[in-house]
């Protein structure tokens, strides 16, 4: 029996998860987000444009209390197609010839 849950074409828009319970309202997420996904609120950051998230991960890496989780990654279509065709693990744009080495 195939597991349907492993289907990569899941319907959620992105992988952003925010737990306002943990938020200490430091304001960093709203200042690092390039799409205004988070905005400053009274006492807590507000997830105001969930659908605009492009999973860059800036909020997650800078949140001091771990209230934000997002599976960030380089959305390089060519690399993903290659990975899907070769059934390899998805890396990123490959070697240094594309966009520099990965750290």
């Amino acid at each position: 029996m195939a597991k349907s849950s492993s289907c990569a074409c899941g319907e959620s828009l992105n992988t952003l998860i925010y737990d306002p319970e943990l938020c200490i309202n430091c304001g960093l997420c709203s200042s690092v987000c390039p799409h205004g996904v988070f905005t400053e609120g009274d006492g807590k950051a507000v997830l105001s444009k969930y659908e605009e998230c492009m999973e860059c991960g800036a909020c997650q890496i800078n949140c001091p209390v771990g209230a934000i989780h997002v599976e960030s990654g380089v959305g390089c279509a060519a690399a993903m197609i290659r990975a899907a065709l070769l059934r390899r693990n998805e890396v990123t744009c490959g070697d240094a010839a594309c966009c520099g080495p990965i750290k």
């Binding site: 992105n14 599976e71 380089v74 197609i81």
Partner: peptide, 15 residues
């Protein structure tokens, strides 16, 4: 990949 607003989830879904 040249834009600043497509998420990896979105690109994967498109693929």
């Amino acid at each position: 990949g040249s834009t600043t607003f497509t998420s990896r989830t979105g690109v994967r879904r498109e693929i």
